[in-house]
Design a protein around this nucleic acid. Sequence first.
RNA 1: GCCGAGAUGCUGGAAUGGUAUACAGUCCAGUCUCAAAAACUGGUGGGCGCAAGCCCAUGAGGGUUCGACUCCCUCUCUCGGCACCA
Length: 833
Amino acid sequence: MDASAYDHHSAEKQWAEAWRKHRVYEPNLDHPNSPFYNLMMFPYPSAEGLHVGNMYAFSGADIYGRYQRMQGKDVFEPIGLDGFGIHSENYAIKIGVHPVEQAKKSQENFYRQLGAIGSGFSWDERLETYDPEYYTWTQWLFVQMFKNGLAYKASSLVNWCPSCKTVLADEQVEDGVCERCKTSVERREAKQWFFRITKYADQLLANIEKIKWPEKIKNAQRQWIGRQTGLEIDFKLDGTTHDGKKEIISVWTKFWETMFGITYLVLAPEYPHVESCADETHKTEVRAYIKKALHKTEQQRKIDEKDKTGVFTGAYAINPATNEKIPIWIADYVLKDVGTGAVMGVPSHDLRDFAFAKKYSLPLKQVVSYDDATINTAVARGEKAFEGKGVLINSGEFSKLSAWGEGKENMKQWMIRKKFGRERTTYHLRDWLISRQRYWGPPIPMVECAECGWQPVPEDQLPIELPFVKDYKPTGDGKSPLERAPESWLYTPCPKCGKKAKRETDVSDTFLDSSWYFLRYPSVHTKDKPFDSARIKTWLPVNAYIGGAEHAVLHLLYARFVTMALKDWKYLDFDEPFPFLFGHGLIIKDGAKMSKSKGNVVNPDEYIEKFSADALRTYLMFLGPYDQGGDFRDAGISGMYRWQQKIWRLFHTKVRTKVDTTKPTTQNLLVKLQRTIKKCTEDMAAFRFNTSIAMLMECANVWSEDGEAMEKKDAEQFLKLFAPFMPFMAEEIYQEFIGGGSKGKKSFTSIHTSSWPTYQQNLLVEKTVEIIVQVNGKLRGRFTIDANEAMDKTRVAEAAKGLEKVAELLKAGSVKNTVVVPGKLVNFVLEEK
RNA sequence: GCCGAGAUGCUGGAAUGGUAUACAGUCCAGUCUCAAAAACUGGUGGGCGCAAGCCCAUGAGGGUUCGACUCCCUCUCUCGGCACCA
């Protein structure tokens, strides 16, 4: 036994191999005793490789999985690569390597790194989204969406990233820029495939109440779905449009109580038939404005926020409440996707309307009066708008009623009765734009026939393999690089009539690949269907899903939607894929999120080489609460390395390997160990890894200071407690001389499949306790007393009074009150003299 | 603007309403050494004091309580999500 130092290089290599050879982390997928699907969000591989942020995510998840395994669970912890998509493709373009080639390199490097970090992955079940065996079923999913009316191709104004040269889903535009490359997104009219996720808006919202997720993520989803109830109100056009139609303009509002104060209407530039409302004299101006507005990027619109622009159409509408003629304007601050894309202008009671009305000299009309005279006068004079609560005025029969209570309700009923208003719920959620004009993704399995229209590829013809296209770069003309695929691929008989038809050349969004992968893992080797229903029944839904909050309205929303759809099609019997989700924090470096552009990405390789994977993962977990993330620093990790070496030395110098009943583990150490077991057991189950590690350190400190060696059976318990954190060294010690002892033997029992220690309750019961003595709530002394006596209030109080110092202090006044918490403390409250 | 999370030593952080600052990192001193590293020992919130000890401190200010980092109210700041949302 070499007690001097632990060599992680050889040990980590040896045990990684042994675990795989002996299939330590491969549960029986068909007949597990106690299945536990422990899943972490799978990574996008990149050529830079895994960074410590990934490792942080995987380590926490793995430690939790190891704990569950030692609790007797058959833990299934698969790993794979989300390798299709813009992220990987952009990198390939940047370095000028074909994505197919780059994928191979990234895969090799990623799996090497994932094998080195100490996670107990079920390697036999890995999957890659770019593997035709996988994307066969991604395409199958698309076909099901189409057959069930949830996929449709429609022309609409969509987000276009000029750098990635593709359209994007709303969820992939953050603050007006492309989620991937941070380029300002433009708006473009284009015909695209959509998934009808909005059909599930209510279910997606309602189910949030029943899933155990971080409040933060649940809230983000609630906000994104953005369900709001309001009133849709119809306005008739005054006269007809220039082409003779009697147009009706509907607005949507939550504040219909200000109905009598409407002085104009504003339409979004995208509003249907907006041009036909304009009269001849204004038509040119209106056209020019619309054209300009449509070409603005999201960011440009933001810049214009303060300075609202708009044009008058020359047309008027009739306010159904007052029969007044009100002008119709067009302005780009009105968004087509909010409500109906038309807004009623109530400048006296809406700040934005006020700004707009002032700029274009539109009339103001007060219909709510306020208690505060200053405010009321200002509103009456048209000096400002006010949005607070008040009483209705100038509102016909509703005047004098409260604007938020009775008046609001009555007006609603009235509008519904008169049939120009109706209740309508609106959502922020849009249908999921699924098409991408890119190369590196699964081709959308649809065929367009001149006669039969869009037809899905028959399922027995799947997969439609991604053809090799030498010039894979996106073109920017709105067409996919697959337009350059060989004619033999591009053209195919129509599945319905057999005539020559053309394939869809767009590929699907990366997020479709990851929207169902957790269903595939338990049956990756199944060839004839996307997943084996028996295994789905056994393993799903996922017991613990661990990932970052950055996917709150991306992956996590899409996966829920797909699961709900599959349930409705009878493939699944649950509608939530992840009933329990733990959102881990973010590892930052030098106060900033790790990113290539900042140059602060930390690759774990050198740290693993220098300090060991064990030390690195434990260090990462010790940084702070797992859901908070932390700042990565070199200094901290060497500290963890020292601790690891210290543990190694303790095991090699202070363990009594031979049974000697005359020298058991000292009581002091034994009690500390029991407490440690209790603390770790509770903390591990709740992802409180940092405090778990701190307790292990305390225990090791007691061990280190203890004069005697620890008995082997006790040392084994301690070893098991930190095995999830330092799986390699724990295995090394275990096999060497503690529990397994199978080094060199044929059979192999890993510490990681051994059972988690239980503590002895009787050892936790203290014989004596320390009582805290306070005077007026301030700590003034302490004493030790027999644990039984400590429960006797009178005795404790007497004993406390007996303390010299306390007695001295009590002379300062008379004791007004004595608070005794049995077994804990005494507090004397003094009446001041 | 709305929603969510948070603010504790020099730093990361710990604390069922009951000993604030656990556990680490950092730094300082010592032991060992020719020396260094490693390891080990001690110290490390501020103030007063030779000391025993006392006073102050958990973003700010109030409140509840015998007792508040913890519960309630107001405010400030930081981070995250949403947002010309009608």
